[in-house]
Amino acid sequence: MANESQKTTAVQTKTKLWLDIIVFVAFLITMDPHTSGIAIHEWLSLAMIAAMTVHLLLSWDWIMEISGRFLGKLGTQNRINYILNWLLFIDGTLIMISGIMISEVALPLMGIKLPMGFAWRRLHDMSANIGLLLLGLHTALHWGWIVTAINKYLVQPIVKLFSAKQKKDAAI
């Protein structure tokens, strides 16, 4: 039973690590729409809504636990983390909504046409810049987890693979 739950946690951590790597790369691409092109920028951003939903689902237990304990006894780091995550969620929502409002490719393709609003454009730029800072803080606060997970699920399997190959070669 304990082994099974450990296995589930390991699978969840691995999934989360790969998802976070993909979201990070996608974020870097979407942050430069002039180079990627507006179509890639918009479709990739819309796809990130799904990726972020999965990210939240994988952290659901932590979210529920801290939500319940937020007004009670809670460590400073968890409290800061929780507030920062809410700010990131609100900022993410603002980026998405303002992006949808100024969409030039995705929405017109779906047959939806909204009047051009310059307030939304300014909000989109501003929230994207704030998002970069918040994501930096989010990464910094989870740096320990990132290093541990990369070491455990990326570096060590590669090292093991090479050492096994060397042993095999030596045996021959």
């Binding site: 002039h34 180079t35 507006i38 890639i40 009047p115």
Partner: peptide, 15 residues
């Protein structure tokens, strides 16, 4: 006040 019709292939500033 209408948004420009975009096909996703318009030249970007950087390009």
């Amino acid at each position: 006040g209408a948004r420009p019709e975009g096909d996703g292939n318009r030249p970007e500033r950087g390009e």
